[in-house]
């Protein structure tokens, strides 16, 4: 009976939280100093290494043969021109409520990628009055596939093996900068 009483006494103890509190109080000011509430990133090509080489090879191969140009007009219509071995095809995505139809543009680019899976570079030519936010939105909608859609499969020209990627047209260059 005495042993049981002793055991009950042992099982009740107070946890000493003071050292833990000391650590937390030291860490919190450090974290508060380095906290970021808005993360700034840059628009670039987020390509994994293996895919990056295949994309670079595909871009090099198609440099003069297949070119994709995308013009954003001031009325927000987007015109996509594909020059395939000298023959040109045009697709137009009409504006929706005076804004670029981003969903329509994405669907159009997805359809184009079915015909040209190894094309990753697009020449973007916005008109002078198009604001930056609209240009960034266009770039976002043509960069990658949505998670609900199937990935793009293309053949790596160096290894001959099929490569699966969620990239559509990630290599975006402003075509009309140097044009003056």
């Amino acid at each position: 009976m005495r042993a049981l009483k002793s055991r009950i006494d042992d099982s009740t103890f107070e946890l000493n939280l003071a050292p833990m509190l000391d650590i937390i109080v030291s860490i919190i000011p450090m974290l508060l100093l380095s906290v970021v509430f808005t993360r700034i990133t840059v628009i670039d090509t987020p390509v994994p290494q293996a895919v990056e080489q295949a994309v670079a090879a595909a871009n090099e191969k198609n440099k003069d043969l297949i070119q994709v140009r995308m013009a954003v007009a001031k009325n927000r219509n987007v015109q996509i021109t594909i020059v395939d071995h000298g023959q040109s095809k045009d697709y137009e995505v009409a504006a929706l409520n005076a804004k670029t139809d981003l969903d329509g543009l994405y669907k159009q680019v997805l359809a184009i990628k079915k015909d040209y899976p190894d094309v990753f570079r697009v020449e973007l030519n916005p008109e002078e009055s198009v604001p930056l936010e609209e240009i960034v939105a266009v770039m976002d909608s043509v960069r990658t596939t949505k998670s609900s859609d199937k990935k793009v499969v293309f053949t790596d020209s160096t290894t001959g093996k099929p490569v699966e990627t969620n990239l559509l047209l990630p290599d975006i260059i402003f075509g009309n900068v140097a044009g003056g």
Binding site: T41, V42, I43, D44, P46, V136, A137, M139, D140, R143
Partner: peptide, 11 residues
């Protein structure tokens, strides 16, 4: 005010 984007590339 910077534009918002889905790009996750760190500067």
């Amino acid at each position: 005010t910077l534009p918002a984007s889905s790009s996750t590339k760190d500067p």
